[in-house]
Structures are given as C-alpha cells and as structure tokens.
C-alpha cells in the first residue's frame, strides 16, 4: 500500500495547507484529501508541483508499505 507523507514534508518545510494549496494551484479540500491518504490516485502534474514547491523527491512524499495480511 502507498503511504502519503505529505504532512511530514509540510512540517519539515514549515508550510501550511492553505499556503501550499495556493502555491500549487489546488483547492484546500483536494490537498486535504491527498494529505489524509484518502485520494485514489495522483496526477504526475500534481506530484511535479508538490516536489517543486517542497523541494523534495517523489520518494519523500510517497512510500510503499507491505499490506499486513
């Protein structure tokens, strides 16, 4: 399963949800869906903008964890 570590990166860069949403041209609601791991998929363009604003790699935001069976 893919884990979204967006909140970790946002804390590291000391940026709030509203500010990040405005910078990457996304609504707060959609960014919140992403941050809380409720999204089903992420577009490359969104990932591109996030990495650009947070100055990080996709691997810093996305993490793979084995599903516990």
């Amino acid at each position: 399963m893919i884990i979204i570590n967006l909140d970790v990166m946002m804390a590291k860069r000391k940026i709030g949800l509203a500010e990040l949403a405005e910078r990457i041209d996304l609504t707060q609601a959609n960014l919140s869906i992403l941050k809380n791991g409720k999204g089903k998929a992420i577009r490359f363009s969104t990932l591109n903008r996030l990495c650009s604003e947070l100055n990080c790699q996709p691997g810093d935001i996305l993490e793979f964890k084995e599903d516990s069976k």
């Binding site: 996304l26 959609n30 869906i33 999204g39 089903k40 998929a41 577009r43």
Partner: peptide, 8 residues
C-alpha cells in the same frame, strides 16, 4: 466517477 474525483 468516484475514483476520478479522488484523483488529485
């Protein structure tokens, strides 16, 4: 549609 709406 639901999946599309949750594609950010």
């Amino acid at each position: 549609r639901t999946e599309n709406e949750l594609t950010i």
